[in-house]
């Protein structure tokens, strides 16, 4: 007895650093792993950024042309033809503010929703935390958004200096928070869809026009104040609504800031993100068997 105890003691128990089991806890998200792979996130971001514009004439200028053209078209169609109100703000700035932020959201949702299907090849060969992919998408879209934001700020400065009725105010300071909320919402919805598309490919078709339709359910091309009372409640339930409204209110001065709505929106974002992470975590373990 004592001898066997002695032999046992002389063989050190190996220090396991990883354990692979069929199931893992619902909330066992392995975020530590994600941190260890942070360099990979940024290399993917770099790859996305560099590869998209290689062998193009205009290169990153496309980041600028895209929102400019959209804003011009919105200004003509919604502002001048449909004559939608803009809370008394310059139409161009009004549409640009909404469009730039919405484009970020739409980009995050559509790109992250393709995570599993688009990366099945690489996921089937190497392990790294799958969340690296959607995160890198959100960050590379953030860079695009940043460039577009600069253009927007340029126009804002021009309009402001030439005496247009814009009044940037203290809500402007909420902008970083709003951007994080948009990113969180986009990421959350995107990974929910990505987790479900491993089983139901139909959802891929839904995402494209779903996001487009959702834009009309969000005060992007119209101010919340112009929405008839019977639809107001409905549109205010949309977690993106307070974000866009506050964003515009901060930079341009129009629109309505409702802190309570904003808090609700933040809660919804956290909820969506949590559901997304849970679904994603469940699917990433075995999706290779179904894709």
């Amino acid at each position: 007895m004592s001898i066997s105890a002695f032999t046992n003691a002389s063989v050190p128990e190996p220090h396991w650093i990883a354990e692979i089991t069929p199931q893992r806890g619902l909330f066992d998200l392995h975020l530590g792993d994600l941190w260890r792979y942070r360099d990979l996130v940024f290399l993917f971001v770099r790859r996305d950024f560099v590869s998209v514009y290689k062998q193009t004439i205009l290169g990153p200028a496309w980041h600028i042309i895209q929102p400019l053209m959209t804003t011009v078209v919105f200004t003509i169609v919604f502002g001048n033809i449909a004559n939608l109100p803009t809370d008394g703000l310059p139409k161009f700035l009004f549409y640009m503010a909404g469009n730039v932020l919405w484009a970020y959201f739409a980009g995050c949702v559509t790109k992250t929703s393709e995570t599993f299907v688009a990366n099945a090849g690489i996921f089937g060969k190497v392990y790294f935390p799958r969340l690296v992919m959607p995160l890198s998408v959100v960050i590379s879209n953030l860079i695009t958004f940043g460039i577009q934001m600069l253009i927007f700020l340029g126009f804002l400065a021009y309009f402001y200096l030439s005496g247009a009725p814009v009044r940037p105010n203290r809500w402007l300071l909420a902008a970083p928070l709003l951007i994080v909320m948009v990113a969180g919402l986009g990421l959350g919805l995107g990974i929910i869809v990505s987790a479900l598309t491993t089983r139901y490919r139909d959802l891929r078709h839904l995402v494209g026009f779903g996001v487009q339709l959702l834009m009309y359910g969000t005060p992007v091309v119209y101010p919340l104040s112009s929405v008839p009372a019977k639809y107001q409640a409905l549109i205010r339930w949309n977690p993106a609504t307070p974000i866009i409204e506050t964003f515009r209110a901060g930079f341009l001065g129009g629109g309505q800031v409702r802190p309570l709505d904003l808090a609700m929106s933040a809660l919804s974002v956290l909820g969506v993100l949590a559901i997304g992470l849970l679904l994603f975590n469940r699917v990433e373990r075995t999706f290779m068997d179904t894709v």
């Binding site: 190996p14 220090h15 396991w16 650093i17 990883a18 354990e19 692979i20 089991t21 069929p22 790859r47 560099v50 590869s51 290689k54 062998q55 090849g121 690489i122 996921f123 089937g124 060969k125 190497v126 392990y127 373990r285 075995t286 290779m288 068997d289």
Partner: peptide, 30 residues
Amino acid sequence: RVTAPTTGRIRLAGRVASLLEVGTGFHPEL
């Protein structure tokens, strides 16, 4: 860790790298 087992347990006492196929993730434009 590309896919999870249905039953059982694997314990590893070190970092694992797999060369299941080389060149994974190479991007032609880079």
